[in-house]
Design a protein around this nucleic acid. Structure first.
Length: 627
DNA sequence: GCAAGGTC
């Protein structure tokens, strides 16, 4: 019997073949340069001892488009909402499909080994379609391996206990694809026809070439976040506040105590309170409470893609796209694990100590890794904390092998260093400290001061971006003791506007609102820059994302015609995610959801086209008022 | 010339 196994990418095919083949496998080239075929033998429960070929695809095996008669300019735009849809392949995808057809021609069974997530299920279905086009019998002889990591016993168990593809997940992905395509194409054509000839290129006003003004279910909410922040800053009105601050002599120094009420926006009220304190207590206060407790600063959670992008942006000022590209290169060279993951829990049977061992020779952190393993100090190897996310496809990002000083590319070196330090920090002890809080009463008001002593730095020795430092010591006083204040004043201040949006914040917002995925968040940010909806601006070493006139106008334009919530906010995309989950759970049907969402977009299209003058007016207005 | 999602 002959079995063909297909993974989502070559690296998984190679690893799984290595495990199932027990080291005895032959490697053949395929018609695609990305894909190898691995031959070995394995005993499957459904077919006994078999000749096996393990191969892979490289992500999706096809894409979607409208049929040729509905190209740009060939049909009225609203026809896009119900035009026939065709599956298309790029040249690379065609080569990969060709390999699948060829390998499956004389196969008795097909086993799908794509990632166990929603897109993986769909890719598995695409593989089945390609396979049955050359061997129809496989339709009834297809299995699906369920696995979530590459530990050998787990993989063998998956091979011995095959299941079936989850067709509901396939339906859910098909739904997303169709809704994204129809809404994206329709509104992109509409906005481009309406505005492209009227907008001035932010980057180059002399450039008269018509830009594309695109709409996408992820692009617009992403833009919405940036514009929203910009508007909050623009509309911000500073408010004055007043507060009371008291000080106590502490050796040659003075310790200031924070008012329990922090601050109030009523000057007279603060003045009255202040005067009453002076009247009742003069400059004498009393220690009313003294609390002392051990405290911990937690080591980081296992590393996900979103966290990697956020922190590379913070620590190295690297864009999300750049850090993901560098991580991708490091992965291809075998230095780090797969870089696109949502998982922040290490599988319990992974040999993490062996990975720490790998790092003991590195001049930068080798001695730290040795200390962890030696277990002679309090900072010994400790199994990482577990987060709450598991994508069932990939483990958290971690270093695989040490790269010494062998990385010439600056970004790759930084990302490798970050991944490794983060990993070692995950396997370390939390930092330990001691926190003392002193409360003093002056008049009828309470004031507090904190004193922190960091006792053990532990993971912070390797993860030096974490800030947690010993503060000045509190004055030596006991509860009930009366003290002479060294100062008491009423002060004022002003509330300050929020900062402009950083890329790290935008990534956080997108992730929290389900806009894009670990693999695509960076692309969406990149896309709205390329469309000139936002631009990067450097202010004092920090890079901020600022919306352009066009970006602001698009958001306000849809606001003006009452469609803000559907277009520039994350709600609609999130609603679709909810519906996709319901499809996966069998609670809703694909056709019903598509119909529902497409009807809504048709409705919005009607509103938008009836109010198109308003979109233009908003653009012209904002352009006049800003420049 | 249009989307978002995989992966290289």
């Amino acid at each position: 019997m002959r079995v063909v196994c297909v993974a989502e990418k070559n690296s998984i095919a190679k690893a799984v073949a290595g495990i199932l083949g027990g080291g005895r496998l032959a490697r053949r080239d395929s018609s695609s340069k990305y894909i190898k075929n691995y031959d070995f033998t394995f005993e499957f429960p459904f077919a006994g001892q078999c000749d096996v070929t393990m191969t892979a695809v490289a992500g999706h095996l096809s894409g979607m488009d409208l049929d040729a008669s509905h190209g740009w300019g060939k049909c009225p735009i609203p026809a896009v909402f119900n035009a026939p849809i065709i599956d298309i392949r790029t040249k690379d995808q065609e080569k990969i499909a060709q390999n699948i057809r060829k390998e499956c021609r004389n196969a008795d069974f097909l086993m799908i080994w794509t990632d166990c997530d929603r897109e993986g299920e769909y890719i598995g279905w695409e593989v089945v379609q390609a396979a049955i086009s050359s061997n129809a019998g496989l339709e009834r002889n297809t299995y699906r391996a369920i696995f979530s990591h590459l530990e050998p016993r787990h993989i063998i168990h998956a091979a011995k206990n095959p299941k079936q593809l989850d067709l509901r997940a396939v339906d859910a992905v098909r739904t997303r694809m169709e809704v994204d395509l129809r809404s994206g194409v329709a509104f992109t054509r509409f906005l481009t026809e309406l505005l492209a000839s009227k907008v001035e290129r932010a980057s180059d006003p002399k450039n008269k070439q018509r830009p594309v003004i695109s709409y996408g279910t992820c692009q617009f909410p992403t833009l919405g976040f940036v514009v929203d922040r910009h508007e909050r800053i623009r509309r911000f009105v500073s408010e004055s506040f007043w507060f009371i601050q008291v000080g106590v002599a502490n050796g040659a120094d003075e310790t200031f105590f924070q008012w329990e009420r922090v601050h109030l926006f009523d000057r007279l009220a603060v003045a009255v309170i202040y005067e009453s304190c002076v009247e009742t207590a003069g400059s004498i206060a009393k220690v009313s409470d003294l609390k002392s407790k051990s405290t911990t600063k937690y080591r980081p959670l296992p590393l996900t893609t979103v966290e990697l992008q956020k922190n590379c942006s913070r620590f190295f000022k690297m864009s999300a796209k750049t850090s993901l590209e560098a991580a991708e290169k490091l992965y291809q060279k075998g230095f780090i694990s797969y870089p696109r993951t949502e998982t922040d829990i290490f599988p319990s049977n992974m040999d993490l100590k062996a990975l720490v061992e790998q790092q003991t020779l590195d001049p930068r952190w080798g001695s730290y890794a040795q200390t962890l393993l030696a277990e002679t100090t309090s900072n010994r190897f400790k199994w990482p904390r577990s987060g709450k996310n598991d994508d069932k496809a990939h483990p958290p990002i971690h270093p695989i092998i040490t790269c010494g000083s062998g990385l010439e590319n600056d970004n790759e070196r930084k990302v490798y260093e970050y991944v490794t330090r983060h990993f070692l920090a995950c396997c370390s002890e939390d930092a330990k400290g001691h926190l003392t809080t002193m409360t003093i009463e002056w008049g009828y008001e309470q004031f507090t001061a904190n004193g922190l002593v960091v006792l053990e730095r532990n993971f912070m020795d390797i993860y030096f971006w974490a800030k947690w430092e010993t503060t000045k010591q509190l004055p030596a006083l006991t509860v009930g003791q009366e003290i002479q204040l060294s100062s008491h004043v009423m002060k004022d201040g002003k509330t300050s506007p929020p900062n402009q949006m950083t890329e790290a914040e935008l990534i956080l917002l997108m992730d929290a609102n389900g806009i894009g995925t670990d693999a695509t968040i960076a692309e969406h940010i990149e896309k709205i820059q390329q469309r000139e909806y936002i631009t990067k601006k450097k202010i004092n070493k920090q890079t901020y994302l600022i919306p352009t006139i066009l970006g602001i106008s698009l958001v306000h334009g849809f606001e003006e015609i009452g469609l803000e919530d559907s277009f520039a906010k994350p709600f609609l995309r999130r609603q679709m995610e909810v519906d996709l989950k319901l499809i996966c759970e069998g609670e809703k049907r694909k056709l019903q959801v598509i119909d529902d969402l497409i009807s809504r977009y048709q409705l919005y299209y009607g509103v938008t086209s009836r109010n198109q003058n308003k979109l233009v007016e908003v653009y012209n207005h904002i352009r006049r008022t800003v420049t």
